[in-house]
Design a protein around this nucleic acid. Structure first.
Lengths: 336, 336
DNA sequence: CTGAAAGCGCTTACAG
DNA sequence: CTGAAAGCGCTTACAG
């Protein structure tokens, strides 16, 4: 249906040179290839005037690269991932790369599907927050020497680039803060997916209890099924708070669980106050504006995306295989 | 660096048939092309076992289509756009399409850049929340008969598909609600970008004042510069509330302005209560969890993205040029 | 029923 | 200093 775009042939014909010459000039190799300044200028003018843009698809086919980076996350509308997406987009754009994204919804099969799809589109690099079952697919990418950076969730024993925060310590410090505030019955609300990041949040919680000579009570750890509705989350939490009135502090292992928790409290008319504390993972406006303000573990989005993009471009431009790096940043506990 | 992927040639050689035959089978034209069932099954088995995936880049070059949809918004990390991105992604994926996105930051030149880039990547359709200065570029796309759907912001006098909410009425109803609550001095906090969507929010505000015999006071309408920092927004609003203590209701024309406004109020220790009301555009958890809860104009994300995706696929599959449709949905005023 | 060949728009090794 | 030609991996009109 649409009008035909100009091709390199059209420009070559118009300028009375070969497409080789035009190609060299487009790619800034005019001088290097000893093309006369007069010809270079003449052709650049034509390109400029006619608004010719090289067909990147043809270029991709020929070169085997696409200048596209694939981003695979659990849910692009989650503020954490949306924030990362925005920052990465910006940094990639400055180097001439674009981002294609997809959400896995934590479905095990989806990662494979997405990676295959991205592969067939010749994406140059993969940024992945691995869902459950992603390990084999990522191993395959590594075998093929594709540039890969994981973030948010680490895959233990896999020698791969990773950027994330120290979840163990973040949880540990949150609990430590509760103890300092004389809390006696500290609950952890987390999610039942089996990924390192989430497991470490639990481990840090447990270790902090041990180190402060506090008993660990299984009843105070709630693992929510992944993907349950917000209403189900709220109901479960209302039940928890009712059946365990002794709870005087809650650490929420994710942003959306904290929001569900605050809604449950609101519904019960239970106040967050000197006798009941809350700490949430992933800071946000909602916690700053809450009355009272809610403490949170802030993930440094800017630092995370900087590191991701740097690792990606290091790999893209590397002549040989680089040793993978694991970059662990600190989550900042913001006490309010 | 990476291992070579299988090509259609490899499969053809292995199966001892021509690449034509393999291509027909891949594309489900085996039966139509009278290829024997035996051959079809044999080749499908080989494809399956070897994990062959056709190179989509080559396919794009040959076909002139990419099964990629370009999404251009102001800022992908804005919850409204992130929500739309997620829903669109899902619906597109089910039809075999992927999304490539970019944020314009409302910079006039950026839209052209992005459209050119997307064009050179052969994207099949464009979903655009137009920034200032996007008009000419969109006109060009229309001239080339590319499938285009605008959303969020409309471009008047441009005959193009559009999905959005009735901003005039949403503002009108918000002000009407304030009047019903006996508010006397209703402020509007908006942004200084000159796009229909934002202008209509102002128009609805003005008209509602007129219809309810209330004076319009220019001092009660604040147009914030686009792109100012959150701190600047907060400072400006603190000033506003201090210099106009008579204000007893505020309509915020965007989500982030409302958040800034609530922060300003918090900083001033000024309460939202029976004597001071707030309504925000774009509902969110932050308003539900605020104490007291904040009323909001909810944009129906699901309905918006459904309509966008339907319009896109109607155009993609149309044999001839379709008459553009403007779909105006209702913003729902949620009174809390 | 199946295959050889052209062509999508590029890049680049090679020739002159 | 510049160009003809091969080839990236597909699809499809055409031939038999």
């Amino acid at each position: 249906m649409s009008t035909k775009a100009l091709s390199i042939k059209d420009i070559a014909k118009k300028a009375n040179v070969s497409i080789t010459t035009v190609s060299f000039i487009i790619n800034g190799k005019g001088v290097e290839k000893n093309i006369s300044t007069a010809v270079i200028e003449r052709i650049e003018k034509i390109i400029q005037e006619d608004g010719y843009k090289p067909n990147q698809v043809a270029r991709s086919l020929r070169m085997g690269t696409s200048k596209i980076i694939g981003l695979i996350v659990e849910d692009i509308s989650n503020p954490f991932f949306a924030g990362i997406a925005r920052l990465i987009e910006d940094k990639a754009y400055k180097k001439g790369y674009k981002i294609i994204y997809s959400s896995t919804e934590n479905q095990p099969g989806k990662t494979k599907e997405l990676i295959d799809l991205f592969k067939s589109r010749q994406v140059d690099a993969y940024i992945i927050a691995p869902a459950e079952g992603a390990r084999i697919e990522i191993e395959k990418l590594l075998l093929e020497n594709k540039p890969v950076v994981l973030f948010d969730r680490y895959l233990p024993d896999l020698n791969v680039n990773y950027v994330g925060i120290d979840n163990f310590n973040a949880s540990y410090n949150a609990v430590k803060q509760f103890v300092k505030d004389k809390r006696k019955n500290i609950a952890l609300v987390t999610v039942d997916i089996d990924v390192e990041q989430i497991n470490h949040r639990l481990d840090g919680y447990k270790q902090a209890l041990i180190d402060h000579q506090m008993p660990f009570s299984a009843g105070l750890v709630i693992k929510m099924p992944f993907g349950q509705t917000k209403e189900e989350t709220i109901d479960r939490l209302v039940q928890l708070f009712k059946s365990h009135p002794e709870i005087d502090a809650v650490l929420f292992a994710t942003n959306y669980l904290a929001i569900g928790g605050l809604m449950a409290l609101k519904q019960m008319n239970k106040m967050v106050n000197e006798r009941f504390s809350v700490i949430a993972y992933d800071d946000g406006d909602v916690f700053k504006l809450h009355t009272p303000q809610i403490s949170a573990v802030e993930q440094p989005l800017d630092e995370i995306s900087d590191n991701i993009i740097n690792l990606i471009f290091q790999q893209i431009s590397a002549k040989e295989q680089l040793a993978p790096q694991q970059i662990i940043l600190s989550g900042r506990l913001i006490i309010r």
